[in-house]
Structures are given as C-alpha cells and as structure tokens.
Design a protein around this nucleic acid. Structure first.
Length: 940
RNA sequence: GCGGAAGUGGCGGAAUAGGUAGACGCCCAGGUCUUAGGAACCUGUGCUUGCAAAAGCGUGCGGGUUCGAGUCCCGCCUUCCGCACCA
C-alpha cells in the first residue's frame, strides 16, 4: 500500500524530519554496524567464545531467552515478535546497567508443515526449512534484535541434533533408582544384578544373555513397549496423550485418534512425577502455569488394595480413600480390564437383580455386549453422556478384605482402564459417581463417615469414621493412615501414589525428525549406536510421507518413511562382536525433542566435545546457592506451552542433572507468559472474510467499498485475511516506531487487538524526540550545554527513577509513557539542554535502538550506546519542591493547599481547614485526617 | 461441573502500599501554518445538566468495612483460558 502522504506531500516535509524514509535509511545502517562490530557478542568464561577483553567479561550475568519459533512458510506477523521485542528491550536495558547479557535466538525447525509441503510438492523439507529460517532471520534482523548471532542454530542442524541424539542415549543408558530418587547409569544396575545386590525373579547367573538384556531394558528411562497408544490413521502416526484433544482427535489436522496396542518408544517421565511436582515450588513461574502442570501430573496418594475373587485371582484397586473401605459395597472394573474374561461365571448367580444383567441370559453375553458397546464409543461419546452411568454385572463376587463381605463385581465405562489399576472399590455413600451408579443399579449404601442428620444423598465432606470397626471415631486423615498400616500388616495392600501423567510416547512415524541412534540385532532388542558414530544423519528419501490411511481405519498399521529406505535400514557395524548386520530404528523423534534442551546449547553452541562446557553452564545457568534451581533467568513465551514443552524440558534437564552433566536442576528459573496480539477480521454478507486493511469505519459500522461487513475478533492469519507483517510496518513507519508501538500498547502479559491506525502515535513521539536534537529544516544540532531549569530537572529525574523501576518489572508501556512525558516537557523549552536530552536518548534506546544510536552519534559520541550507563536518578531531585494536598470534606475533594515538603502535620491541617473554611461554614470538624504527602480528609 | 485469569471513557490502557480515577496514546472537535491538509504543531476531550461558575453521577451488578474502596470482605453476572467420570 502506498500512502498518499508519502507521494504527494513529500515536497512539504522538512528535509530533516524523522520520517519512515529516514528510519529506513538509519536502521539498516546501524544493523550493519552492530553486525560488523559484534556489538552484541556475549563473552563466555571458557572455550572459543571466551573474550577477557570484552567490556562485560566477568560481569554479573543475565540469561534471557525467548521460546524459539517454528519457522513457518508464511513468515512472521506482527503478533509473533511481541515477546521478542520485550526481551530485546529488557536485555538492552540490563546490558546498560552492567550485566553480561546472553540473549540468543534459534529455530525449532523439525516439524510437520515442512514435511507436508514436501509430500505435496516434492521439495525436500531441508530446502523449505532453510529458506524459512533465512526469511525469519531477515525479519528479525530488520527489527533490530540484539542477538549474539554466533549462538544461533536450528534444531535440524546435524551438529545440533547430534547432541539431541546424545541426550537420548543418556536417557536410554539410565535407570531411575526409586530409593535415591534419581537417574543412575544403567551400568550400575547391571553391577547390582551381577553382585546380587538386586534380584529378579530368576537368578542373574541362570539367565541367558537375551533374558538379561530384556531385564535391563525394562528398567531404562527410554524403552520400547507394546502398549496402548494413540494411533492416528489420518496422519499415519502415533501421538502423545498431550497431542490428542479432549474429544479424541489429533491436535494437528483434527483427525480421529484410536487407542491401539503398538510397539513404540517411551520415556519414563512418570519416574520423575514427584520431583516435577515438588520442584514447581521453587520456580518463579506464573501460578496458573504451575497449577496446570500440577494438574497434568495429577499426583494422588492413597492405597492399593487387593480384593480376592472366587478362585485364585485378586483384583487390585487404587483408592484415595482407604478410610472408607468398610463402605465398599461393590466393585467396578474397566471394560478393558484383563481379569474380566477369567472371572465371568457360566450363569447368573442366585440373587442377581434384573437391572444388573442388561437383559442378557448369561454373564458372558452381557459382558461381551457391554464391551462391544463401550469399544464402539469414542472418548467423546463416553464422556458426553455425562453422569448417566452404564454398566453390567459380571456374575462374579469379590471379598472385601476388611470385613469378608461378598461384593458384586461390575464392569462400567466410568472406570478408566488407563488410570490407577483400572479397577475401583465403590463407596456409594461418599463418592458421587459411585452413588449415581448405585442408584441406577439398586446397590446398597453404607455410610462410613458421620453424615450430618439433615443430609440426603452422597456425602463427600469430612467427618468421623462410623460403621468401620477399628477406625470408628477417627478423622479422615487418621483413618487413612490407620487403614494403610492395617492393610500392610495383613498383606491386603499398601500405601500407593498414582499419577495422571503417563510415560511419554517418544516415537513418531515421520520423516522430518531426529533419527534414533538405535539399531537392532537378531534378538530384536535395541542397541545404542556408539557416541563416536553420532550424528546418525537423516538420509535422503524419495517419499517423505508415512503411509496414511482412511482416517477412520482403526485397524491400519503404521509404516514409517525411513523403513522404505532399505539400504539405510540395513547397516554393517562393529559394535564389539565383529562386523555384523544390524537393522536401524526407523521411527523419528517427536518435534518436542529439539526444544527440550536448546537453552543449554546456546551457552556453548560450537563445542564439539561436550553438550556444554561445565564452566559455561555453571556461569550462565548454575544455582545461586543452596536450594536454588538455577536455570535461565527469564524465559518468555506463550502460555500454550504451559504443559507439553515445559514439562518435557524439565524432565530432560533433571536427567542431565542426575547424570552430572549440568549443575542446575531446573531449566527455567523464571517464566513469563506474554500476551497475544489479535486482530479484527471482517466478513461480507456471504460470510467470506474480506481484506481487513481495506475496511473503513463509518458511523460505528464497517464497510468494504460500499458493502457493509460484519466485524469479528480473532487470531491473525491468512484465512481471516487480517495479517499485518512487521515488514510492512518497518517500511511504512520504521522498525523503531513499530517496536515502540508494540511495547507501548499495553502490558506485555496482556492480549490486545492490533490497531494499525494507532501506530502513528509512536511515530510522533520519535519525531518529537528527533526534533529535540536536530533542526528539521537545517539539520543542525540544536542541543546546547545550557542548564536545565529546576522544575524540568525534577521532571527528568522523576522520569529516570520511574523508567528504571518500570524496566526492571517489564512494565514497558508505562516506561514509554514516562519517556513521552519527558519529551513533551522538553519540547516547549526555548533551549534544548544536553543535560536532559542525553538521558532521554539513552532511556529510549532499548525501545528505539536505531534512532537512539543515530542521535547518540549526533550528540558527539563515537561509539555504540549499547554499553553506556543507563541514567541514574539523583535522589535529591526526587524531593518535590512543594506538595499539593487535596482536601476532602466527607470524602469529596473540596479544595487544595500547596505547602513545602517539610511542612509539619499541624500546619498542613491548619492550612487545609482554612482552604475549606467556606465549605465548612462554621461547622466543627469531627475528625481531621492528614495523610503525609497524600491528602487531608475532613469529617463533619 | 472443577480450577485459574479478567471486567475502568468511543478504543488500547494508567493508578506499584486503602489516599486527587482516567497517566500515555488512538479516535474525535476547534485552531495555527497553508493553494490544499489526510503532514506537523497548539488547544479541548469520562458522562449528565449549565452561557458560565458550578453541581450531580461514575471503575460489570448488589451489599459491607472505612474519614476515604478501581484496590479489602461477602454474594452474584459476564468473558477468556485450562481440565473434564482420574477412583
């Protein structure tokens, strides 16, 4: 879009006015200066990035990081860089206050879109990805980001994913010691078995080599298992639980997802459940994010209890309320529970109620029908039916171990196979779901918690135990503990903790991901590729797509793209037993893998011997003392990563910590969620989006041409035709104006609508600031060494003080408001004083770095201001010359008095009463309150 | 249903410790300069009444505490986010 103001009025614009055209001359020049001079290189304490001569070498450090982007084909829109500009402004400020600042940027470049594009066009994903990364780099550079470009990488760089694979091997070669609550090298486990310190069902000495390997493999933190997973035929891949929506579809692509038992790689994140929950307490994270993680991990404490069945079987249940065991009047198994088949008798036992049978002649028929019905339902249907409980009697009875009572065993889909043991004891008196089920199936209720007399129905509150033999009279907490001790003594159960969190499904049937550093021998058991052979490079293939299927074909089988590359899959290696043929793992890692540890690689990006030099890790991320987690000092990104990325990254970091590779036990000390920039979109009468930039407002309605259109509010995107790019903002206003606008429009953590029209306000501010230094007509420098008048000087120092405070707290919007106030205060002054202008320029520089550098140069400095000292307020100037007290009478402001700051309270009171004397009209004040420095309140 | 965040002018937002509500910016109106202004600059701008001085009202709604409440307490409403039979 060509603005008319540019073309038609150019002749009238003074030659030295700060315009978009001037910004577009200034900005690339300074970007080049910074790049050529390595202005933003941050020195490491050790290795190839060490630089003892650097002005910040050995200074206190600050590691600030953004959640790096996936470089999509459509480039950045104005919403994407919001957080980046925020961290750039913050780190520029902190650098000027003396910190050695690490603020890097990289690219999360493995992922589905490049692969899908490759499938459609045949373009290699690497080609697409590299082009997109270059585009992103260009866009970010154009915004003047102060990154240390030597530390930038893509997760797709073989030299990067070499270390992703190396970490995978660390995980693979470890096991979790529950006693020490930490990961240990797998070799130590082998030793324990060899020496008999640890025993399996079969003595180690009697086991075959394969049996030993299977035993060990079963303890690894990365393991292959045949287990129910989320199979998505439409995508041709399996998905992690976290990638499946609540209605049972894929987060990407919205295809149906089916539970299938398949052999897949998993990571034993559940072993870290306790530490992942507990360590949240020491993190400086937004409470909602911690809450989401706590909920996702879903730790609950309770007990496993065995209910013996007729015959030899015992059903294990998990309960958080062992104190209510005496009230268990029936049991429920998940329809998929493995014991269902073995417990079903040939005929309905005596006393079977009609509602229990579902109208079927035999238990076998009833169970089969119910299972078929449950299997046919999607997760969505199962939960959509809400509280209507369905189920059927299995015909079997179990024995309540605490009192020997026979209780009927049902199957019902309100019990989930995937949680706890997939079986429950039902206590209808004190559990809402069990109550509902008991009502439907006419089952008895026994109260075991004293229930208020007037209470009807289920009671889930606290109370003393009743009808519970040795528990009677105990409160809930004591009753739980007593029951668990009893169960453990009697051998009927023991205290237990379960998690909602499942082990992390780690393999994907895709091409564009990190290959596993794993081969298989003739036993079919996995073998680690030696570290010396890393990276296992992703081979080129002809066909990038996994085999996809009819999205509803639940019985289809995954087929990976790499499996078709036969000459790659079969590999000759000498792994210690001479040259042998091995088969490569053909799954690839999920997209999360690369982002699980990138914060570490920024610290030492070119280190070819180690993931990161311990000296560099300790400096940038090490703990600050006992109990301190260490980690990135400030990590900024969207709240959408509250669970997945942040949980996986914490898990890997803890494994690396346990194995001694890092000194911090958390990756991100402080987390900050920036808001989203959204935008209005407009639809015509047919409901089609029209180009938002062409819509005009008239009389509170919106028109596209002559047609009235409807406005809506949502994400910026191609499909809504409301995209605004930073490139066009830079072109029309300059990058500095764009940066100032994004930071001024609201608090960083709030979401707000984009409004291109309002950008002009930021442009005017920069223009006024430029005008303070440079005469618009002649280009002459206007700044002189005249002293500031006392009043303006106080304004200056008040602003300096306020801006410093705002910057520390990331309150950029109010910092900019204060800078505008200062600029507006200087504008009408007859002489422009260096005393005020230099601090103004320095304080503007985090937001408008190009303009600030340009003005700094014009003010006579010959080097970058990036390492200049940020202004410090003179405390003497912060004391007001006089204080104006508003005077309230009965809570309403009725007058004002201006007094010297050191006026005594009595004098203020007297002056205030005099000021409102006519309002009081002779009435005697009942009370006079003087709040020092604030106001006077008179009550009559 | 459970958990969390948030509701302030026409709009984005400010008020950091209970103390002058609306900083700063956009829009809008009037003006200066000008052939012109859709540039820049200046002035005004919460709502109602009023020529004005001024008065009344005002931070989602209803109560409460207080000399004083956007801020604290109780009860609601609305919006957004997360979870959703987790035993």
């Amino acid at each position: 879009m060509v603005t008319m103001s540019e073309s038609e009025t150019a002749a009238d614009v003074p030659a030295f006015r700060y315009t978009a055209a001037m910004a577009n001359e200034i900005e690339p020049r300074w970007q080049q200066f910074w790049a050529e001079n390595g202005t933003f290189h941050a020195p490491n304490p050790a290795g190839d990035l060490a630089d003892p001569s650097h002005p910040r070498a050995g200074a206190p450090k600050l590691h600030v990081q953004d959640m790096f982007p996936y470089p999509s084909g459509s480039g950045l829109h104005v919403g994407h860089p919001l957080g980046y500009i925020g961290t750039d402004s913050y780190t520029r400020f902190k650098r000027m206050t003396g910190f050695n600042v690490l603020h890097p940027m990289g690219f999360d470049a493995f992922g589905l879109p490049a692969e899908q594009y490759a499938v459609q066009t045949g373009t290699h994903p690497r080609t697409t990805t590299e082009a997109n990364v270059e585009r992103y780099r260009g866009q970010l550079r154009r915004l003047g980001m102060a990154y240390d470009e030597r530390r930038s990488f893509s997760t797709t760089d073989p030299e990067y994913y070499r270390w992703t694979q190396w970490i995978f091997l660390q995980v693979f070669n470890s096991w979790f010691d529950p006693e020490l609550r930490r990961a240990r090298p797998i070799a130590e486990l082998v030793t324990e078995f060899e020496e008999g310190a640890r025993t399996a069902e079969k003595p180690w000495s009697e086991m075959s080599g394969t049996e030993r390997r299977e035993l060990i493999d079963g303890h690894r933190l990365a393991y292959v298992s045949e287990a129910p997973v989320n199979w998505c035929p439409g995508l041709g891949t399996v998905l992690a639980n976290e990638e499946v929506t609540p209605d049972g579809r894929s987060e990407r692509g919205n295809f149906p997802v089916f539970k299938r038992s398949l052999r897949q790689w998993k990571m034993r994140i559940t072993a870290y459940g306790d530490r992942l929950v507990e360590d949240l307490d020491v993190l400086d994270w937004p409470e909602p994010v911690k809450q989401m993680q706590r909920f996702w991990i879903g730790r609950s404490r309770g007990a496993h209890v065995g209910f013996p069945m007729d015959g030899d079987d015992t059903v294990q249940v998990f309960t958080t309320r062992p104190d209510t065991l005496f009230g268990a009047t029936y049991m429920v198994l998940a329809p998929e529970h493995e014991l269902v088949d073995t417990v079903v008798p040939g005929a309905w036992p005596a006393g079977t109620k009609d509602v229990w049978t579902g109208g079927h002649p035999t238990p076998e028929a009833a169970v089969a029908a119910y299972r078929a019905q449950a299997a046919a339902k999607t997760e969505e249907e199962r939960t959509a039916e809400g509280k209507v409980k369905t189920g059927v009697f299995t015909g079997a009875y179990a024995t309540n171990p605490v009192n020997g009572a026979k209780v009927p065993v049902f199957i019902a889909d309100y019990v989930l196979a995937g949680y706890g043991t997939g079986a429950i004891m039902a206590v209808p008196g004190h559990d809402e779901r069990d109550w509902d089920f008991a009502q439907t199936f006419d089952l008895p209720v026994i109260r075991t918690i004293e229930t208020p007399a007037d209470h009807e129905g289920v009671y889930t509150g606290e109370g003393a135990a009743i009808n519970s033999d040795f528990l009677n009279g105990l409160g809930v907490t004591d009753a739980k503990a007593t029951m668990i001790s009893w169960l453990e003594e009697q051998g009927h159960g023991k205290g237990a903790t379960t998690y909602r969190l499942r082990d992390w499904l780690f393999s994907r049937q895709r091409y564009w991901g990190e290959p596993f550093p794993i081969v298989y021998d003739e036993t079919g058991l996995p073998i680690a590729v030696p570290e010396s052979m890393l990276p296992v490079e992703l081979p080129d293939v002809d066909d990038f797509s996994p085999r996809t299927f009819d999205p509803n074909d639940a019985e289809s089988e995954p087929e990976t793209p790499l499996s078709r590359k036969k000459d790659w899959v079969q590999v000759e290696l000498d792994l210690g037993d001479g040259l042998k043929t091995y088969t490569r793992e053909t799954n690839t890692m999920p997209q999360w893998a690369g982002s699980c540890w990138y914060e570490l690689r920024y610290l030492d990006p070119a280190n070819s011997d180690k993931l990161v030099d311990p000296a560099n890790e300790a400096y940038w991320m090490g703990p600050r003392g006992e109990g301190d987690p260490g980690g990135v000092d400030l990590y900024v990104g969207g709240v959408e990563h509250a669970v997945l990325h942040l949980l996986y990254a914490r898990f890997w970091h803890k494994v690396l910590f346990d194995l001694g590779h890092v000194s911090s036990f958390e990756p991100f000390r402080k987390l900050y969620n920036q808001g989203y920039i959204q935008a209005y979109a407009y639809r015509d009468a047919r409901g089609f989006p029209v180009e938002a930039s062409e819509v005009v407002e008239r009389d509170g309605k919106w028109f596209h041409g002559d047609e009235e259109v409807a406005r809506e509010y949502g994400k910026m995107g191609k499909s809504l035709r409301n995209v605004v790019t930073p490139d066009e903002m830079a072109e029309q206003y300059g990058a500095d104006t764009f940066r100032v606008y994004e930071m001024a429009m609201g608090p960083l953590d709030a979401s707000r609508p984009w409004d291109t029209r309002a950008v002009i306000g930021s442009q005017r501010f920069l223009q006024r600031a430029y005008r303070l230094v440079v005469d618009e007509d002649s280009g002459a420098i206007r700044v002189g060494d005249t002293e500031l008048d006392a009043k303006t000087r106080r304004v200056l120092h008040r602003v300096i003080d306020g801006v410093r405070g705002d910057m520390e707290e990331l309150r950029f919007n109010t910092a900019i408001a204060k800078l505008i106030e200062l600029t507006n205060a200087l504008t009408p002054l007859p002489a422009v004083s260096r005393e005020a202008v230099e601090p103004l320029v320095l304080m503007m520089s985090p937001f408008a770095p190009h303009l600030a550098e340009e003005l700094w140069r014009k003010l006579g400095h010959d080097d970058t201001l990036a390492y200049a000292d940020f202004p410090v307020a003179d405390p003497a100037q912060l004391v007001a010359e006089s204080i104006t007290y508003p005077v309230q009478v009965n809570g309403k402001v009725k007058g004002r008095v201006e007094v010297a700051p050191d006026t005594t309270e009595d004098a203020v009171r007297a002056a205030a009463l005099a000021a409102v004397a006519d309002i009081l009209a002779g009435r005697e004040p009942r009370k006079v309150i003087v709040v020092k420095g604030k106001l006077v309140s008179v009550v009559v």
